[in-house]
Design a protein around this nucleic acid. Structure first.
Lengths: 140, 140
DNA sequence: GGAGACCGGACAGAAAGGGTCTGGTTGGGA
DNA sequence: TCCCAACCAGACCCTTTCTGTCCGGTCTCC
């Protein structure tokens, strides 16, 4: 394997795409999301915490609590969701911290990594949750 | 972290870009490559084996042995090098084996992963070792 | 005030990453 | 011929990250 995102990020995207099917402000419980998307609940709990801390979702505590998107689905990208859970995306270390790369190779390779990185970011940054939700009303 | 290629793949690209600086057929020893590119030699040995098995490099055994590109540098892409070491690139599991994804979510998310995957492959598949080598003759 | 739900972090098993080592084979050169 | 330089193959090992679980705490609605 290698260049692959984590299960956590996968789950995060699925969970968010689930929330995006509902009208703005609609609250879904952890249990509900986990069941609908087939995600282990205790793991999902941790993931949703990250999303709350990143400001992508808001939570409602107490009875009838749960989670909702913090913004309209059209304003949340896959990139944001992934980075909230996995940390900054970088196809390799030398993109993230150029000081590692600088020494030996007069890195023309570095250029290549940057291009790949940039392309990837473009795609992930341009796909919003809105475009992921199947239909605004068709809820399973 | 998360979406990041392995150290092994990084090393592989560096090693290959080193070989690409020499005229076709020129043989460099493991030791030489490791030293020039600052890669642990015993690890590099393993990596080069993968590249040989993948048909990207050829090896010469015995005294004055070493490694050389199996084809002109213009005909070897970063994608090939990475996959030789890390295995097939797939931004997530559901791209590699769709049977996992099929069940629950009527996966509009799947579409998104495919797009990201495709973009990434386009970039990595279009960068050749030739374009990585600084100059045909400028060897350090 | 109690039940339902999120919060926060400690914990743990499994897998992958990153690298070393050893014994074997090949082949060139003295 | 014989030795040494170099690759070959794979077993092994340590560390980190992933992928979760669990539990005590806190909040809030009823």
């Amino acid at each position: 394997m290698g260049l692959q995102l984590t299960r956590g990020a996968e789950y995060a995207v699925r969970a968010m795409s689930y929330l995006a099917r509902y009208p703005e402000g609609h609250v879904s419980s952890l249990h509900e999301i986990g069941e609908a998307q087939d995600i282990p609940e205790s793991f999902l709990a941790k993931i949703l915490q990250s999303l709350v801390r990143a400001g992508l979702t808001v939570s409602q505590r107490g009875a009838h609590g749960g989670f909702a998107l913090a913004r309209p689905a059209a304003e949340i990208t896959m990139q944001q969701v992934i980075e909230a859970v996995d940390g900054p995306i970088s196809v390799n270390q030398c993109v993230l911290s150029p000081e590692d790369c600088a020494r030996s190779a007069s890195c023309s390779v570095h250029e290549a990594w940057l291009r790949a990185q940039s392309q990837l970011m473009d795609v992930l940054g341009s796909i919003t949750l809105e475009s992921l939700a199947p239909e605004p009303a068709a809820v399973g």
